[in-house]
């Protein structure tokens, strides 16, 4: 039997390494930083079409992830889609006339909401709406249009 101090030391080292590993998983591997409950605000945008966008899809500004999609709902009257997203509150200077579009990362990659900064002096705050939006590009539609034009020629 080891004496108690040595045993305690080894147990202490083991637990410390275990907790460190947990911390590394939380901070370095996962999206905890963009999650951080207290530090987000919510904005909504109205799209004609969101094909392929999912809850938790990233929201990007200038190619940098600043938040994620929280809910996707169909508005039963206008048949538009309301997308609610959370944005990290340290990014608080997005002009109110910014444009939101739905893009694809790479040709087969996942869909994300891309914001393009506008020029207004007022900024988006919690609960504001993004008015200028671009619907998702549906590949089949484009191919269909292209074929149609070819046939017409």
């Amino acid at each position: 039997m080891l004496n108690n101090t040595k045993l305690d030391l080894w147990v202490g080292i083991f637990v410390a390494v275990g907790v460190l590993a947990l911390l590394m998983l939380a901070l370095n591997v996962s999206n905890l930083k963009t999650h951080a409950g207290d530090g987000v605000y919510y904005v909504t945008a109205r799209f004609e079409n969101v094909s392929g966008l999912k809850v938790r899809s990233p929201v990007m500004l200038a190619g940098v992830r600043i938040g994620q999609v929280e809910t996707i709902e169909l508005d039963p009257e206008s048949l538009d889609v309301l997308v609610r997203m959370s944005i990290a509150s340290n990014i608080a200077t997005i002009p109110i006339d910014s444009m939101a579009g739905i893009y694809t990362a790479g040709i087969l990659g996942e869909r994300y909401v891309g914001l393009e900064a506008g020029i207004e002096e007022d900024f988006l705050i919690d609960g504001s709406n993004i008015h200028r939006t671009n619907p998702a590009m549906v590949l089949e539609k484009l191919i269909g249009q292209f074929m149609f034009n070819k046939v017409e020629e």
């Binding site: 998983l25 370095n28 591997v29 996962s30 999206n31 905890l32 930083k33 999650h35 938790r56 992830r65």
Partner: peptide, 18 residues
């Protein structure tokens, strides 16, 4: 690292693993 960070969720992935 960056793709990992944007795809791994703290609740759905890491907490569930624990």
């Amino acid at each position: 690292w960056s793709q990992m960070q944007s795809s791994v969720d703290i609740y759905n992935d890491i907490l569930n693993g624990i």
